[in-house]
Amino acid sequence: MLRLVAGRIVSSIGTLLFVGLALFALTRSGPGSPARIVLGADATAEQIAQFEQAHGLDRPFLSQYAAWLGDVTRGDFGKSFVTGRDVAAEIVNALPVTLAIVLFAFLIALVFGIGIGVLAALKPGGAFDRISRFASVLGLSIPAFWLGIVLIRFLAVDLRLLPPGGYVPLSAGLTLHLQSILMPSLSLAVYYIAVLARMTQASLQETLRGDYVRTARAMGLSSRQVVFYALVNALPPVVNLAALSFGYMFGWALIIEQVFNIPGLSRALLNAISQRDFLLLQGIVFLFTAIFVFANLGADLINRVLDPRQRAAA
């Protein structure tokens, strides 16, 4: 068991290193070397060589990557060539904002996605099932950022219920904080509610037909317990999908932050792009990729707990 878990962790880290290498290569594939960008078009070859030496850019590619990785494991993402600011500090500034929105959205998606999926699975062909099927196609199809725009128009501009944008940190008060992240999180969550509801419904409908559910009924268990018996077996694919969703949410959060004018990682990333600030961009994308990889690892481990057969396979 322990060895298998360790194996999965090692394999996830391997994937991350491999993907990180691709990222490292790609960030260096853009037009113009960092030295050119920082020093300007009229810098002399000597100045450029000096800059590259100072920042280790003249070393072999793989050794640059290894050095960067080594620093990252110590929490050091380097200093931006462009702004001179500490990349880790910039990420630490912006991350809580993005995290607040994503976590809240994830919570909404889990509660409503699984809740709707369960209710729809209990009565296949019923009114709720049909409505939720229809609504889930809408949820899958309406782009989050457009939903955000529409919500701003109705809830903020017309009804004046919520602030149209901006971000209030938790330290300024829970109500204000929640008010500021409600619309962004909701816009972000709708697609994932639909995704999770569909998966929950399909999976639960399948397990509800299982022989062990018939046994549970034959033994006189309450309907709540019967549903619970089916649900524990229906969850593994839902957990996998939820982890994927969590990882993907950060990407859409970037767009959503633009809509709501929120100073999260999106602003940092777009600044990095416009200033051609490689280290900052690399740091942010690597962080998102790590979150994605480890969310999937987490799902794997949760499923090992949920499914004793997998646990035994260790």
């Binding site: 994937t15 991350l16 491999f18 993907v19 691709a22 990222l23 790609l26 960030t27 594939s29 853009g30 037009p31 990882g247 993907y248 950060f250 990407g251 859409w252 970037l254 767009i255 990333l269 777009l270 990095a272 792009i273 051609r276 490689f278 961009l281 942010i284 994308v285 998102f288 990729t289 979150i291 994605f292 990889v293 999937n296």
Partner: peptide, 24 residues
């Protein structure tokens, strides 16, 4: 198949934005 797994563990939108950003 390891490369496929690697590519599958890339958060799509973040990378798309970042790489287009790098390439200009």
């Amino acid at each position: 198949m390891r490369i496929v797994d690697g590519v599958a563990s890339i958060p799509l939108l973040v990378w798309a934005i970042a790489i287009v950003g790098i390439l200009g």
